[in-house]
Design a protein around this nucleic acid. Structure first.
Lengths: 205, 205
DNA sequence: ACTAACTTGCACACGATTGTGCAAGTTAGT
DNA sequence: ACTAACTTGCACAATCGTGTGCAAGTTAGT
């Protein structure tokens, strides 16, 4: 039996706190030390090791739970118009900015690329399908092969997300517009699209 | 007197070899150790320290000489058409891919951002002027403030450069097209531009 | 061929980081 | 209030990276 003993309430809180602190710390510096993470969670390094076997185990858990969110979002996009679908995907992901920033940074870490790529396979699959659709109906650029364009969109999105102050106003809007531009839309097309569908950029207001 | 003693021929070769090896190693991993760099230059770690005071001194020299190349390129762009100027700047920089890849990666290293930014100020200034011009004559997008657009172009260019296999065919073309897209051109405009000016993408052939 | 320049390996001190054992304290839950 | 769960600090071993001193080799240049 995997002996499913129920952890104490404070332990669960602390564990969550560590994950949260790690997410923030690693988004700024993927090499943040275990000590820094633990301290920023208000706990001791030793305690962290009581909750996670490894520095790696901690990061792996962040990757997995983060990826689940993103993949769920990807699957929730139902727009038939590829341009709309891409815009909404970018916007919805941006709402998860706090989690995405971590992913965007950690996805470059040599030690975790493989695992991250695997965990994000569904999201990547969605993007690929979207690109294929957009190229087929001529709403996306066709001067680049589908796989190249898909990769380009992913990389640019990752960059804009990782290197933008998530709290600044209009950040989400910037991300969406950039992705659409890379997909091949002129900025006026993108602008028109966002004006027609005001729910995309600001689904909170 | 700064005692300008002439170094021996083999010493000069080795020094150059170290810089070259460092450029390659650091482009792949900005945290590459001094030992790895020295070994990949076919020399011992100890010898490297004979040529450079510091790991930092080595990197700083790479940044400075690299930046000089880029700044020279930036100043050599004379096109009045902002779209053309931007395209040519991207293409000319790409020709320096070997050096640019290093810069693109090291520019993110927390320890050297400041120095890199300073060294690349002229290039950055050129881009800013270009963006202003492009927005003024309505060839670039005007949905984003000039400073934001300039930064966006820089970041995207950096990403495409750093994360593309420089040896793959069409890599330069991809970089140019991406930058133009982000600047606000539709892919057909960009395509037309590059067809009209075939010297941009393949100035070597 | 001779010398100064250059390279090398080794030993060392030093700091940062990881992961573990343990004993002593504190706290949640019944 | 009692116990098991949890946290903590400290000591410890181990790894990896930096930077230096030195003595012994090798090599370029005259």
């Amino acid at each position: 039996m995997p002996s499913a003993r129920i952890p104490r309430a404070d332990a669960r809180t602390n564990r969550a706190g560590i994950l949260e602190a790690a997410r923030v710390a690693l988004a700024n510096d993927p090499h943040a030390s275990v000590d820094v993470i633990a301290r920023s969670a208000g706990l001791s390094r030793r305690t962290l090791y009581g909750h996670f076997d490894d520095r790696d185990a901690l990061i792996r858990e962040l990757i997995v739970t983060g990826a689940q969110r993103f993949n769920a979002i990807a699957e929730s996009i139902t727009d038939t118009d590829a341009r709309l679908a891409l815009a909404r995907l970018a916007a919805r992901l941006w709402q998860e900015a706090a989690h995405v920033q971590f992913a965007a940074v950690i996805a470059l870490d040599e030690a975790h690329v493989a695992h991250t790529a695997e965990a994000l396979a569904p999201l990547r699959h969605t993007v690929a399908a979207l690109v294929a659709r957009g190229q087929h109906d001529d709403s996306f650029r066709t001067d680049l092969p589908a796989d190249v364009l898909a990769r380009l969109i992913e990389e640019v999105a990752r960059t804009v997300i990782a290197r933008t102050d998530a709290t600044s106003t209009g950040a989400a809007d910037l991300a969406v517009r950039t992705v659409l531009s890379v997909a091949g839309l002129s900025w006026r097309e993108a602008d028109a699209l966002l004006t027609t569908h005001p729910d995309i950029s600001e689904p909170l207001a």
